[in-house]
Amino acid sequence: MSQSIKHLHERFQKLFPAMDADNPSPADEAGTDSREEAEPLEAEAPAAVPQLRCRRTEHAKAGYDLDLAVEPQQVLEAAGVLDEGGFAIDMITGIDWPDDNQFELIYDFLHFQGPARVVVRTRVPRDRPEIASLSAIFPGANWHERETAEFYGIQFTGHPNPIHLLLPDDFQGFPLRKDFKPEPDPS
C-alpha cells in the first residue's frame, strides 16, 4: 500500500503543480511530518494558513499517510482521484480558526486494503463559507456535510438535501463556531 501512496503523492503533485513550485516544503523530501516535532509546547495555532502542499506523513505520528492542502475549488477534483483509487470516505471535520477568520475543512479518506489514509484539507473564509458538495462522488459525504453545515454554517453548494441532521429543525445559530452564544434558558 505504501507503493500506491507514493503513486498518489506523485499524481497529486502533477495535478496541482502550483503547490510545489510556489511552496517547496522540506517535509516532502524527509517523508515525515516535521510540524509536530518542531512545534514547541506553547506555540501559536499551527500554520496560520495552510500552504498548498502535498506531503507524506508518518502514520504512527499523525494517524494518516498523505496530507494534501488544496484550494477549496480543488477538493472535488482531489476527491475524484481518490474515488478512482478505491478510497472510501472516512469523515469530514470542520475547524473554526477565528483568529485567521477562516474555517478549515478536513476530508478524510481511507483504503480498505491497508494502512493508507489520505487527508485533504482546505480553508474557506469565515464571512463567506462556501464549498462544493462531495455527495455526488461519495453519497456518504451527504450526512457529514449536513452535520458540518448545521454546526458551522458552511454552505455546501450542490448538496441534495441541505437540512439539519442532528439539530432540531428550528435551531438558530451554529454551535461549533467559537463565538457561538447559546440563548439563555427561558426558565
Partner: peptide, 25 residues
C-alpha cells in the same frame, strides 16, 4: 498537548472509531 492535529482509530464493536484532536497548546 503540543500544538498540532492528531488522529487515532480503534476497531470498536461496530466498526472504525476515530478521534481527531486539534490542539493549540
Amino acid at each position: 498537548v503540543p500544538a498540532g492535529e492528531y488522529c487515532y482509530a480503534t476497531e470498536a464493536a461496530r466498526g472504525r472509531f476515530e478521534v481527531r484532536i486539534v490542539s493549540t497548546g
